[in-house]
Write a protein that binds this DNA or RNA. Structure first.
Lengths: 211, 211, 211, 211
DNA sequence: TATGAATGAGACTTCATTCAT
DNA sequence: GATGAATGAAGTCTCATTCAT
């Protein structure tokens, strides 16, 4: 649902897709696929172009170099993440039990992001590709502030530092099963996801026992 | 303690290291450093050879190709992981509270494995490098059986499938903070580790409330 | 005065420049600038089109390929050179001392031709660009006949071969300072030009001592 | 005689040509040929490697990039020019008539340098190739000081500035026929060279009438 | 007819792998 | 057995040229 295509609800907002925008989108989608499959370093611009059903030349009309494609992809995801999380955590009914919140968040994060190989590639390559590291801010870092706000609302008396820590753990814990489940079958994935929710809820209950 | 060097207790035990073995060890250590710094793809065999203070030629006497080095490194870590975990989980006093067990396991896993860039590289590249993926079995999968045995001993009546699931989650959860903390400072790392222990213990208490 | 622009007296004479002719002129001017700055090989057709305030597409409507632009530019210069030299050497009063003739010729050659980067580019690239070499006749070769006629008039008894030789040397000598002076400042350029005139006059005095 | 080969008198001086030195020499000779044929921009590193009967890989072991090859070639020629001219002008008997000096100088300059396509390439590309321009000092500028010293010895009372000017003209005049004669046949070349000597001598006689 | 996006051959450069010394 | 120079396939990127709009 969050694939980069132009037919997304989210992207439909753009007035009308000019030829260029369509091309850029094609390339980013292709890049997501290729990076997702083999990683940044092993991804060749030719392969990306082929996936995008264009030529290298066209690709280079839009992106100065390979790193820029990665960066654009990362930026795209960051924007989506920011959008989705801010909307989700902002609009939550404050009386909702934490378990419901976690339920929704994990479902969204998995379905919209972690399930996409391109997103996973950005997450992983961040650790290595010198360019990538220089360019991409850890995407997860983007999400933390939303959790902080959310937790602060629940426990106004809690130390900000404490809240920050819990938020970090929460965010990271969201990725946990990503790595396990990447090769698992559908049924197992579902079970694992359920477990992950339990994991996170159990943890948060320590700090927010009444929610 | 788990650095690959030949001065390890473990390796020194070998009657006496032949010249070849020493050379292989050097190369693997070098590979761990280089893979750990730039990842599999960006690592060059020349760089590894230089780190190992040998020549590419020598390197290729021991390993047929770059993938083989990666594989050997992964195997090495797997063996260590198996050793350490089997020893640790096997020797645990069954009356030990789960929190203590988790405490020890996480400390060991972090200090002996995740703190090593080479180990992290294997973990990350496993997702991409086509060769690597083909070659390396998910290291974590190696650890699960030990947890299964451990949990089965605690809750003999539990469904094997259930146990398997809990083990998977437990193993994965051990990696959680790896990614967060890689750039964090010492103090923060310590705090995060403490949180991670809470996270896992809270989860396991669901299934083993009396431990 | 010899810049290629359409506002030249020479070109304005054309009944009225068709749109096409104007466009061709623009392109050639642009080509002169770009070739003059970076040379034939490094000049890109896009850069030429941009300089000419057209599109590559339009450029290719008039010229089949890059080499053709170079050729056209060279032809243009050759025509100008032929025009100017024939006029100059044809209209000279035969009683004029050789030094005055040289004076005028060198001034004209420098001011109208060699000072133009485009002309220099043609002269230099002639030696390399395989296409260019195949296409362009040595421009200087165009000028020789005029000198030959001129010298023959002065020394009717001289061997034609001898005259040919002197003409070649004369023509080449005109270029001499071009290369030195290209980076020199105004004052130095003037001095060098004066010396060049002396050089040539001294030489010609050998053969035409009374002129 | 000044071709870059290792069998030159000049280069023979090197104690013994190691494998590397031989390879570098091969590459530079090849570069001289290729640059000489098509110019810097149009010369491909592959073509140079092929000419040198090596692989691109080897070429890049010795030179970081194409520009470096050009630079090395230019440096080589500069060194030779400096050597040859300093030796020649330094060792000249001061009583020698100027015509003899010019005779020898022009012969040497032509036979040892200008006849070599590689040398001509360096001379020409100096005007264009941005890298080349940045790198190479105009070789001719190297020669001027030797002429200045030489002329100053002949006419101690002459203004230094005047001497500088004459030297510049002399050096440039040496190149004159280079361009004409590059496509001329043997006989014509000889004749042109003789004329060039006359040209220069006639000019210098203006300033040094008694020599 | 004018435009400039698209194409893809080919240039430069790197690096896994081989092999002569 | 050790070394590291040599090789060349493959990757990134540019630009002459074409063609749909």
């Amino acid at each position: 649902m969050l694939e980069i295509p132009q037919d997304t609800d989210r992207l439909r907002r753009l007035p009308q897709q000019s030829r260029s925008q369509k091309r850029v989108t094609q390339i980013l989608e292709a890049a997501a696929r290729v990076f997702g499959k083999v990683g940044y370093e092993a991804a060749s611009t030719t392969a990306i172009a082929k996936q995008a059903k264009t030529s290298v030349g066209s690709l280079y009309r839009f992106f100065p170099d390979k790193a820029a494609i990665f960066q654009a992809l990362a930026s795209f995801y960051m924007d989506r993440v920011r959008e989705v999380f801010s909307e989700m955590l902002g609009s939550l009914n404050c009386d909702l039990p934490i378990s419901s919140v976690i339920d929704q968040i994990i479902d969204t994060y998995y379905d919209d992001f972690l399930s996409q190989p391109g997103f996973r590639a950005v997450l992983l390559d961040y650790h290595f590709s010198p360019t990538a590291t220089a360019i991409v801010e850890n995407i997860n870092r983007e999400i933390e502030p939303y959790f902080e706000a959310f937790f602060a609302a629940r426990a106004p008396e809690m130390e900000p530092e404490q809240i920050k820590l819990i938020s970090m753990v929460t965010v990271e814990a969201c990725c946990v099963l990503e790595f396990v489940s990447s090769q698992a079958d559908e049924t197992l994935r579902a079970k694992l996801r359920a477990e992950e929710k339990k994991l996170l809820v159990a943890y948060l209950k320590i700090y927010f026992p009444n929610d």
